[in-house]
Write a protein that binds this DNA or RNA. Structure first.
Ligand SMILES: [Mn+2]
Ligand SMILES: [Mn+2]
Ligand SMILES: [Zn+2]
Ligand SMILES: [Zn+2]
Lengths: 139, 139
DNA sequence: TATTTGTAGATAATAATTTTCTTTTAATAG
DNA sequence: CTATTAAAAGAAAATTATTATCTACAAATA
């Protein structure tokens, strides 16, 4: 969090209240929100905040490597301030997106290297299923 | 291919030349084309084909379970008539999308079950890297 | 405190996908 | 081989997430 100041300074970027709020919100939540969801959550405290600012800030944070973009198959992107390599699981019923925690899938890149001539950088792993809450509902 | 006729009949769907052409093209290629790419490939033989027809047909084929939609992180979707569970690899330089063949990643669903209370259905695994052609170019 | 340069926010633009509506066509029965 | 009917094609408009543009503002620094 404190190193964010340094990171911004390095790149001659200004750490504005809006940018800080967006990053802080992303750090605080495990909900993997979309741009719109971030907007809805911040507009109480930042009534003049524009969606364009959200999008521009997210792009900046991604370039800085402190936020990643998730493609869960919806019509929009989701964002995550947890930049460690970790898989996600999406509920096919309610759309929530959760982390899969404590699992180590880092070996996947090496495993894949055995079967391709690509130079592999990274991967994204998405599981799809039904979350515990939705399982209860459908009983 | 022949069972497509049956499948359509079962659901009271009409197997039109357009639908057949779209499916056949997807079966014939390993390029994982987008809707637009399919459109460009078919319009020589089907000059009246509309992009809306492509989109509607793709949706139908997905519902039938004979085509899957890929989310590689671009601004559009890609489509694949290979519905077996297999990972993909995307070139960060030229954008091509390839299969990772002969690798068996089916154990992933079971592995993930150990770390979540979701009921897991399926997964999507995307690797990102540099394809052999692009590696040569940058030498 | 003045100057510079990057950014916020409003708005318009873009582009993929979906919807709507009318005409056409595939399937089927007579 | 027609006639009938429900489904689909195609054209066009609508929708929606995201991006670009532009001007007023504010953070950094000298
Ligand atoms: Mn996450
Ligand atoms: Mn494939
Ligand atoms: Zn759920
Ligand atoms: Zn390439």
């Amino acid at each position: 969090m404190e190193n964010l100041t340094l990171l911004f300074k390095e790149k001659n970027l200004k750490l504005t209240p809006q940018r800080y709020a967006i990053y802080k919100y992303l750090k605080s939540t495990k909900s993997h929100p979309s741009a719109e969801m971030i907007y809805d959550n911040l507009k109480a405290n930042y009534p003049t905040m524009s969606l364009a600012t959200i999008y521009k800030t997210l792009k900046t944070l991604i370039e800085l490597g402190v936020v990643i973009e998730l493609n869960v198959g919806e019509d929009n992107f989701r964002y995550d301030a947890n930049t460690s390599q970790h898989p996600h699981i999406i509920c096919l019923s309610c759309g929530r997106v959760d982390d899969i925690e404590n699992a180590d899938f880092n070996f996947l890149d090496d495993e894949a290297k055995k079967y391709t001539d690509y130079k592999i950088d990274t991967h994204q792993l998405y599981f799809y299923g039904i979350c515990p809450e939705c399982q209860k509902k459908s009983e």
